[in-house]
Design a binder for these strands. Structure first.
Length: 861
RNA sequence: GCCCCCUUGGCGAAAUUGGUAUACGCAGCAGACUUAAAAUCUGUAGGUCGAAAGACCGUGCCGGUUCAAGUCCGGCAGGGGGCACCA
């Protein structure tokens, strides 16, 4: 029995079944009065078909904290669901003639059973998919509530339009300016679309980041940059001989100190004035068409060559109406930011300078480096706001030396005092365009009536259900082509009207699912009591790729839902952890085809390391280490790993070695190493369990007890901080020690059993099946999954004496062992007696002795 | 283009957040057990010099602050990620 190898497959299935039978992971929707709650949530998966190693890592990480908190006595909510709407289902429908719905639910079914084989401590009774009617019905209610609260509105905005497929394309469907399926030149089109008023919350969303002390600093920084708060100057240029209604051109700048060096003004191609001028100017019409052919992404716009067209109009400087500047339409001006119009100060902005040189415009230096006569050539002089420069033509006072910020402040004051403009705060954050011209999404519950206009659907008519009899044969949105679905009575006047055929962005679905999990069967979007009790999510875990949009939209939704009375929570996620990716080497055949890891054999190592095809023996090129992806075929199927080594091995491996927020490189050797550890624990447990009674020696017993409690103290620190790789290292050290001492009879069997039981409890959150089996083998009561976490005995952490490193001039030269509570003077006295210190001093008095209690001693000679 | 992150032995990494650099693991090497292999166990291991004791060097590169820098500051290089309709 003791020599049997641990059979992960059968053991894991056994315990998974037992956990399920006993319902130990089910949570009360409204927990008992005083039990502390803990909500741990991993970002729910898109049901693409199979789980991948990234999922394994994500859910293993969340499961550790869920199991740990449960053992610590918390009522833990740990749910799972599916982010199930989205484009891939429609692509599959077009390619494989399946229906998005059946494709999605089939994927969910197979991924659910894969996740179950991981042994996650999930409350499956709360599972839902966002494409479930019961979920999106509630989302439609939210949408109507948001309409009532004026949190959503319609406006025009641009989309990528494929003129051949007659469809709107996502940015990722535009490849080098062409539609991915049709290959047609993509153009920009304006559509009237639904928007959430997230920008009204810019200041709140920015300011509240300060309170999120359990979020990674980098995510907060990314969000702050995204919100993009800036303080600047708003003012009006006059437009000479302007078309009616365009006599005044509002402009916003964050560098008002450059207001004395502009040489042109420019407006966006979509600026109302540009549209007006198009009517009378063929050149403008042509230029606007050219801009429409440009991509819509920020990258496309920034990287495109800077182009413009002179409108022939002149604008007048607010400080001096006699100062006239040419007005251009330029492709680098964004209609969405500020007023869609800029002043160009070429001397102090590289983009403006490039533009000025291209169109032979003047360059006026406003300031120069202090003491420099040099004027701007082809490189703009762009100092930071805090840099000190010499102003040569600023507010008419040449030679003023000060920081740019001071000049900005003075300019703002002066402009305001003279009535030329006002200080203004702007945000880059734009309203959230939530309309999608697609089938597989949540229908927007509104009706277009010729008489009443845009009318919200009546609540009693919800949900607006997606029709299932749709065809993907015809290009475009299937909802538009459906013979009857659009036809509906106007909710207001009852006359025949048409349904909105846009569906919601899938980010809407994922912006409130965390709230729905607190009571997924509620007939209203949330059960307010349950939501307030459980939210905010205590620990949210997911990929860094969601650092901005998903998290920002969810933060907006929490606010919007609170306004609409669905909960009373501003911030949805109290703690956030962003995990790294699972990456793997890539392999290519000599023909340039990507090969899967299982298709190749590795030969040799180090510089000698090479690969060949497992079957044909052909040489294989070893490529870079990249994110596991279908296209590079560098994936490892979790199913294969679980079948071969068991879920515990897979879980242990993804938690070991790499810090959770960094990428982990999947290697075969690493997995085997993890599996060896599983077997080692199993052998050790048997050897401890079958050991004869023995009293051991007091000092050895105490030493082992101390080690166990010291390890416990560290694990208690590391698990809540998700420092799993460090926790794993601590466990290895303790296991090494137990292995050593159990060979001799210096340690009592009782003490060994105690240390072993504690070790199993510490391993349990990471390798729960192995832990249960070991728990049983040690004849311990119940299941480890329902056993309270071991109590830490603080007295075991106290050491009587301590070893301090001793440095001479900052270099370690020896160490001393002193009583724990010895004071600084006592340490100094002992140090000075050490012969290596005396040698270094050679009779002199040290200049200084630095004693950091409990840490280090440094003698400065 | 803009923004962000990362860089420590052969490899993944640790370092109590300014205090003994390389814990723990992987791969390696040597040995034990074995007819043999696997599995397992023991030992070894940053570099250079040295028989050894030990000395010097060492956290991508250059400079700074400090008694003390992997950690803080300034500059540079290399690698990776995001950029609003992928989720």
């Amino acid at each position: 029995m003791a020599s049997e190898r641990y059979n992960a497959r059968s053991v894991e299935q056994k315990w998974q079944q037992r956990w399920e039978e006993e319902n130990i992971f089910q949570t009360n929707t409204v927990p008992d009065g005083d039990k502390e709650t803990y909500y741990v949530l991993e970002m729910f998966p898109y049901p693409s078909g199979r789980i991948h190693m990234g999922h394994v890592r994500n859910y293993a990480m969340g499961d550790v904290i869920a199991r740990y908190k449960r053992a610590k006595g918390f009522e833990v909510l740990h749910p799972m669901g599916w982010d199930a709407f989205g484009m891939p289902a429609e692509n599959a429908a077009m390619q494989n003639k399946t229906h998005p719905k059946s494709w999605t639910y089939q994927n969910i079914a197979s991924m659910r059973s894969q996740l179950k084989s991981m042994g996650l401590s999930l409350d499956w009774s709360r599972e839902f998919a966002t494409c479930d009617e019961s979920y999106y019905a509630q989302q439609q209610k939210l949408f109507l509530d948001f309409m009532k609260a004026d949190l959503v509105y319609r406006k025009n905005s641009k989309v990528n339009w494929d003129p051949v497929d007659m469809t709107v394309l996502a940015n990722e469907q535009v490849i080098e300016g062409k539609g991915w399926r049709s290959g047609a030149e993509v153009e920009q089109r304006e559509l009237t679309q639904w928007f959430f008023r997230i920008s009204d919350f810019s200041e709140d969303l920015l300011e509240s980041l300060n309170g999120l002390d359990q979020w990674p600093a980098k995510v907060k920084l990314m969000q702050a940059n995204w919100i993009g708060k800036s303080k600047g100057l708003a003012f009006d240029f006059g437009v000479k001989d302007a078309p009616a209604g365009f006599e005044v051109l509002p402009i916003y700048t964050t560098r008002p100190d450059t207001m004395f060096g502009p040489t042109f003004a420019a407006i966006a191609a979509d600026h109302p004035l540009a549209k007006e001028l198009e009517k009378t100017s063929e050149g403008v019409a042509e230029f606007r068409k050219q801009c429409a052919a440009m991509g819509t992404s920020a990258e496309d716009i920034e990287k495109a060559p800077k182009l413009g067209i002179d409108t022939g109009l002149k604008v007048t400087h607010p400080a001096d109406p006699a100062w006239e500047l040419p007005l251009y339409i330029a492709n680098f001006v964004l209609m969405d930011y500020g007023t869609g119009a800029v002043i160009g100060c070429p001397a102090h902005d590289q983009r403006d300078l490039d533009f000025a040189r291209k169109y032979s415009l003047d360059v006026i230096d406003v300031f120069v480096p202090v003491g420099s006569d040099e004027r701007v050539g082809n490189t703009a002089f762009v100092p930071a706001k805090t840099d000190t420069v010499e102003y040569v033509c600023w507010l008419g006072e040449a030679g003023t030396i000060q920081t740019c910020q001071e000049a900005i402040d003075t300019t703002l004051e002066t402009f305001e005092a003279k009535g030329w403009g006002q200080p203004k705060t702007e945000y880059k954050l734009r309203d959230w365009g939530a309309s999608r011209q697609r089938y597989w999404g949540c229908p927007i519950p509104v009706v277009h009536c010729e008489t009443c206009g845009v009318v919200p659907e009546r609540e009693e008519n919800l949900p607006v259900v997606l029709p299932e009899d749709v065809s993907f044969e015809v290009p475009g949105n299937p909802l538009d082509h459906h013979p009857t679905w659009r036809n509906v009575a106007c909710p207001s006047c009852g006359k025949p009207a048409k349904r909105e055929t846009d569906t919601m962005d899938t980010f809407v679905d994922s912006s409130w699912y965390f709230a729905r999990f607190t009571d997924p069967k509620s007939p209203t979007p949330t059960n307010v009591t349950a939501a307030n009790r459980w939210l905010p999510v205590d620990q949210y875990i997911g990929g860094i790729e969601h650092a901005i949009l998903h998290l920002l939209y969810s933060r907006f939704f929490a606010r919007a839902m609170s306004i609409a009375g669905h909960m009373d929570i501003q911030e949805p996620f109290k703690g956030l952890f962003t995990q790294g990716m699972v990456v793997h080497e890539t392999y290519k055949s000599s023909d340039g085809d990507w090969l899967q890891p299982i298709e190749i054999d590795i030969i040799g190592e180090g510089a000698e390391r090479s690969a060949r095809h497992a079957v044909t023996g052909d040489p294989v090129v070893i490529g870079g280490i990249e994110k596991m992806s279908k296209s590079k075929r560098n994936t490892v199927d979790p199913d294969d790993i679980i079948a071969t080594f068991g879920a515990d091995t897979a879980r242990w491996f993804v938690l070991s070695d790499s810090p959770p927020d960094r990428d982990v490189i999947w290697t075969e050797a690493g997995v085997e190493g993890a599996h060896r550890f599983v077997q080692r624990i199993w052998r050790l447990v048997h050897s401890v369990a079958t050991r004869p009674e023995n009293a051991g020696r007091d000092d050895a017993n105490l030493k082992l007890s101390k080690s166990a409690h010291k390890t416990l103290a560290r694990i208690d620190e590391m698990i809540p901080g998700l420092r799993y790789n460090s926790a794993v290292a601590q466990i290895y050290s303790l296991v090494n020690e137990i292995e050593q001492v159990q060979k001799s009879d210096t340690v009592a069997t009782d003490t060994l059993n105690m240390a072993m039981a504690m070790t199993i409890q510490m391993i349990a959150p990471m390798m729960p099946h192995l832990a249960e089996e070991c728990w049983k083998a040690l004849n311990l009561e119940g299941m480890v999954s329902t056993t309270a976490w071991p109590e830490l005995d603080e007295s075991m952490l106290v050491e009587e004496s301590i070893t301090l490193p001793v440095q001479i001039n900052g270099k370690k030269r020896g160490e001393i062992t002193v009583p724990q509570e010895l004071d600084k003077q006592g340490v100094e006295d002992i140090v000075l007696l050490e012969h290596f210190v005396q040698n270094a001093l050679s009779g002199k008095t040290p200049k200084k002795i630095v004693v950091v209690p409990g840490r280090i001693v440094n003698v400065v000679v």
